Amino acid sequence: RPMNAFMVWARIHRPALAKANPAANNAEISVQLGLEWNKLSEEQKKPYYDEAQKIKE
Rank of each mutant, 00 (worst) to 15 (best):
M3Y: 13
E42P: 13
K19F: 08
Q44P: 00
S30I: 14
P15A: 14
K54V: 07
V8P: 00
A23N: 14
A16H: 10
L40T: 01
Q53N: 11
L35G: 03
A5C: 02
A52L: 08
A24K: 11
A20V: 06
N4A: 07
W37F: 03
A20E: 07
M7E: 14
D50P: 02
L17E: 01
N38I: 09
Q53Y: 08
M3R: 07
P22W: 03
E43N: 08
R1Q: 11
R11V: 11
N26Q: 12
Y49H: 07
A52I: 07
I12H: 06
Q44A: 11
Q32P: 00
K54F: 07
N38Y: 08
F6V: 01
A52N: 02
A24V: 04
Q53H: 08
A52G: 03
K56N: 15
A5T: 01
A10K: 03
S41K: 04
I55L: 13
E28N: 04
Q44R: 05
A10I: 06
E42W: 15
Y48S: 01
F6E: 02
Q44I: 04
V31P: 01
N25I: 04
R1H: 12
N25H: 05
L33C: 05
G34H: 15
K45L: 02
I12N: 04
W9P: 00
F6G: 00
I29K: 01
S41D: 06
N21P: 01
M7S: 06
L35F: 09
K54N: 07
A18T: 11
L33Q: 01
D50H: 10
Y48V: 01
N38C: 11
H13D: 00
G34R: 15
A24M: 15
N26I: 09
A20S: 08
R11Q: 12
P22I: 04
Q44M: 07
E57M: 09
N25F: 03
K46T: 05
K19A: 13
N25W: 03
R1E: 12
Q44H: 07
K46H: 05
Y48K: 01
K54W: 08
A24C: 07
I29W: 02
A10M: 07
E28K: 04
A5R: 01
F6Y: 09
L17T: 03
E36R: 09
I29C: 02
A27F: 12
N26P: 13
R14M: 07
V8Y: 11
H13M: 15
E51H: 07
P2F: 14
S30Y: 15
Y49T: 04
Y49E: 08
A10G: 02
M3H: 09
V31W: 13
N4C: 15
P22K: 04
E36A: 13
A27L: 12
N25L: 05
M3K: 06
Q44E: 13
K54I: 08
Q32S: 05
L35E: 07
K54E: 06
K54L: 10
Q53R: 13
P2H: 14
M7G: 05
V8S: 03
M3D: 08
S30A: 13
M3S: 08
G34P: 02
S30E: 15
E51V: 11
P47G: 03
Q44C: 05
V8I: 15
A52Y: 11
Q32W: 14
K46I: 05
K54Y: 07
E36M: 15
Y49I: 08
L35W: 09
L35P: 00
S41P: 06
E57R: 07
R11T: 11
A16M: 15
Y49P: 00
N38L: 12
A27Q: 11
R1K: 14
E28D: 07
W9R: 00
P22C: 04
A10R: 03
I29A: 01
P15C: 13
R14S: 05
I55R: 06
L17I: 14
K46G: 04
S30H: 12
M3N: 08
Q32T: 07
A10P: 00
N26D: 14
E36Q: 11
E51C: 14
M3C: 14
I55K: 05
P47V: 06
S41I: 02
K54Q: 09
P22S: 04
A24D: 03
K46W: 05
P22A: 04
K54M: 09
Q44V: 05
W37A: 00
P22T: 03
K56G: 07
N21G: 02
R14E: 06
A24T: 04
E43K: 09
L35Y: 08
F6Q: 02
R11H: 09
V31Q: 11
P47E: 05
V8D: 02
V31C: 09
A52H: 03
A18M: 15
A23C: 11
E28C: 04
R1F: 13
R14V: 03
P15D: 09
N38M: 13
A5K: 00
P47F: 07
L17F: 14
E43S: 10
W9A: 00
I29T: 02
A20F: 05
I12L: 10
N38R: 14
N25V: 03
N21T: 06
K56T: 13
A27T: 10
W37R: 00
L35I: 14
H13L: 04
A16S: 09
K19T: 06
N4F: 09
A20Q: 10
L35T: 06
K39T: 05
V31R: 15
P22Q: 04
P2E: 15
S30F: 14
R1V: 12
K56F: 14
N4W: 10
E42I: 11
P15E: 12
K19S: 08
G34F: 15
P2S: 12
V31D: 05
L40E: 01
L33D: 00
A16K: 14
Y49A: 07
I12S: 06
V31Y: 14
A16Q: 12
I55E: 06
E43R: 10
A5M: 02
M7P: 02
I12P: 00
M7Q: 09
E36T: 10
A16G: 08
G34Q: 15
A10F: 06
E57K: 06
F6M: 03
P15G: 09
A24P: 02
Y48Q: 00
A20I: 07
L40R: 01
A23I: 07
G34D: 11
E28H: 05
W37M: 00
R14L: 08
K39D: 04
A10Q: 05
R11N: 10
R11W: 11
M7K: 06
R14T: 04
N4T: 15
N26K: 12
P47H: 04
M3V: 13
W37I: 00
P2I: 13
V31N: 07
A16D: 05
K56Y: 13
S41T: 13
K19W: 07
Y48H: 01
Q53I: 10
K56A: 14
V8T: 03
V31T: 09
M7Y: 12
A18N: 05
P47I: 06
M7W: 15
D50Q: 10
K56P: 06
S30V: 10
F6T: 00
I55A: 06
E51Q: 11
N25G: 10
I29N: 01
Y48P: 00
E36Y: 08
P15Q: 10
W37E: 00
A18C: 09
A5P: 04
A16E: 09
L33V: 02
F6H: 00
K56I: 13
K46L: 07
P15N: 08
F6W: 02
I12K: 09
N25A: 05
A24W: 15
P15L: 10
W37Q: 00
R14I: 04
N21R: 07
K19D: 05
N38F: 09
S41G: 05
K46R: 10
K45S: 01
A18V: 15
Y48W: 14
W37G: 00
A52E: 04
K45V: 03
A10C: 12
A5E: 02
K54H: 08
S41Q: 03
P15K: 12
Q32A: 11
A5L: 01
E28W: 15
W9E: 00
N21W: 12
Q53F: 09
L35V: 10
S30L: 13
K45F: 01
E51F: 13
K56V: 09
S41F: 02
I12A: 09
D50Y: 09
A24S: 08
N38E: 11
N25E: 04
L33K: 01
A52S: 05
P22H: 03
